[in-house]
Design a protein around this nucleic acid. Structure first.
Lengths: 161, 161
DNA sequence: CGCTGATCGTTAGCATGCTAGTGAAATCCC
DNA sequence: GGGATTTCACTAGCATGCTAACGATCAGCG
């Protein structure tokens, strides 16, 4: 009986999935607000952070890194091109590929955006003890590993299984 | 080799926002898959769980409970009506209100859907120690409290501020 | 009684994710 | 060399969230 205690409760308010939904909504909204002040929307961080690390990546490359679908990156990249954060040029050696490159604006957003995200993370966990914060990170990583395993359709086609 | 481990990382893979994004995506996808087997999509749980608790609620009532916008509930309710899970009738006493009521199918989904969500939560946290699981719940609740405070525009219009 | 303002649902349009299907280009392999 | 396969990006269409603007209805108050 660790959790549910009420009489006719049908939905435990501390149900894990519910908690995650709410945290994600709050964190996502806060991140979007904070990042928007620097001309970047929250979903664009998927692409920007990879291009900051190394410029000229392809949509498929970025999608694979985050385990996200290619259309997600393609559509986000189109919005970012319209917003002047990146450019999209065909690869000269392989016409199937598209190279995403940072503009000056895209490069300039790096420091403030990363700072805003870091500050938000600190702010959100300000009331957690050091132990809780450490366990939170561990728990999240464990859940990701756990769900990435059987769920992941073809992550790392290692010969053996 | 849990995840990435490079030198000039610009984006810490253990960055809190990133971890939450990934957990949310994995958990949401798994929940949607599990619930879809019973004819319910993951977002519809917002409405269903409230109607299971008490039938005949209004969209605004449900939106307020979850701190979610009214259009979110309205649009989800329209899809649920099309799917045969609920009906929508105007309130006889107040023509502005819409009463959402469960159909037999909506009522029948209760047990299997709740079981599926519970099993998923257990599965996802199976590799966590009891301590980690306890701290996870605490940490999530604390983050929700923290972000709901100043962020919440008008939660509880107490006279004083 | 009737005007004004508050309340409630709806519509329109956007961002972020997804799957399925298309088409072009590169690669494999006979 | 040339047809079949694989690999890309892209498009179309959906679900889930949002804000802004609209319209209808109810409640207050003169």
């Amino acid at each position: 009986m660790q959790t549910v205690t009420l009489g006719g409760m049908t939905e435990d308010p501390t149900e894990l999935l519910t908690l995650f939904t709410r945290v994600h909504k709050l964190l996502g909204a806060a991140a979007d607000t904070a990042m928007s002040e620097h001309g970047v929307r929250v979903g664009q961080n998927l692409i920007l952070s990879r291009l900051w690390e190394r410029d000229g990546r392809t949509p498929g490359e970025i999608a694979a890194h985050w385990q996200v679908s290619t259309p997600t990156i393609v559509n986000t990249a189109r919005r970012m091109e319209a917003a002047g954060l990146i450019t999209r040029e065909p690869d000269p050696d392989d016409a199937r590929l598209v190279r995403l490159r940072l503009t000056d604006a895209g490069r300039a957003a790096r420091v403030p955006v990363q700072a805003a995200r870091r500050e938000l993370a600190e702010h959100a966990t300000a009331t957690l003890t050091a132990t809780e914060r450490r366990h939170l990170r561990t728990a999240l990583a464990k859940i990701i590993d756990r769900l990435s395993d059987e769920d992941g359709p073809d992550r790392r086609p290692t010969t053996t299984r």
